[in-house]
Amino acid sequence: MKLPIDPAWFAPLISGLFRLWIRTIRFECVGEPKEFLEINKRGKPVIIALWHGEIFPVTGFGHTLTDNLVTFVSQSKDGEVIAKVLERIGHSTVRGSSSRGGVRALLQAKRIMEKENRMAVFTVDGPRGPRHKAKGGVIFLAQRAGAKIIPIRAYPRRSKVFEKSWDKFVVPFPFTRCRICIGEPFEVTGEKLEGDILKQEQERLEQHMLSLDSCE
């Protein structure tokens, strides 16, 4: 049955609830966010890399620091709602994913990064997985934009984990503590991204992000 109300109309309510929810969470940082914020302030391109299942806490943490971000959102109906929520909390959004509209979204994000000096936010294993397996999009964007990739992980002390979802999506409980782990900047090779070179860069980024497991 088709709903008589467009779900996107609920974006103001959802964004308001998100802001309130995030204000209750006590983030504890391992690593220094001021370092990549300073890189961005100097006009240098930055990409924040995260796993798809950690979107909620990492986006929440980012909201406590800055809204100077451009985020990738799928072209699905659900994506329309997510895009409107993100835009209400200050993000620019580009619509596309590895399965649909990906190249156009990458080029659009690059233009926004250059024109508005926004940091890109990229779910490395999204939108459909496999979980914790880096795809090529973030590597291509980083090389094209000359950007440093900053890996960020989130470990809420108490949370709801959706075990049946491919990404094991995590929603922190209100009033919990959440450890945020910020890795060292990752630089992509200058070699042409074909075949084994691209695969090698994806594997390097995967390991770089998985190495943050030790800070849990």
Rank of each mutant, 00 (worst) to 15 (best):
P156T: 00
P127D: 02
P156K: 03
P127S: 05
A154K: 06
K148S: 15
R153I: 07
I150K: 06
K135C: 10
P151G: 07
R144D: 03
A142L: 04
L141G: 11
G146Q: 08
A145R: 11
G136T: 12
R157H: 07
A147I: 04
R157F: 05
R144W: 12
G129V: 03
R128A: 03
P130M: 10
G137F: 08
K133P: 04
R158I: 02
A134P: 02
L141E: 12
R153T: 03
P127E: 04
P130E: 09
I139T: 12
I149N: 03
Y155D: 02
R144I: 10
P127I: 01
A147G: 11
Q143Y: 13
K133D: 14
A145W: 10
I152S: 04
P156R: 02
G136A: 15
A145P: 15
A134S: 13
I149A: 01
I152A: 03
R157Q: 08
R157P: 06
L141R: 05
R153A: 11
K133S: 15
I150E: 04
R144E: 12
R153S: 11
G137E: 11
I150N: 06
L141A: 05
K148L: 15
A142C: 13
P127V: 06
R144S: 13
I152D: 04
A145N: 14
V138S: 11
A134L: 01
A154D: 06
V138W: 09
G146M: 06
I149H: 07
R153Q: 14
V138G: 08
P156N: 05
G129K: 05
A145I: 08
P151C: 08
R158P: 05
A142S: 15
P156L: 00
H132I: 07
A154L: 01
K133E: 15
G146E: 04
G136F: 00
I152N: 05
R128K: 08
I149E: 04
A134Q: 05
R131F: 01
G137L: 08
I139S: 04
F140Q: 10
F140S: 10
A154E: 00
P127G: 02
P151N: 08
G129H: 00
R158H: 12
L141H: 11
I139D: 01
A147H: 09
A145V: 12
P130Y: 07
K135R: 14
G146N: 09
K148Q: 13
R157D: 03
F140W: 13
R158S: 14
I139E: 03
I152P: 04
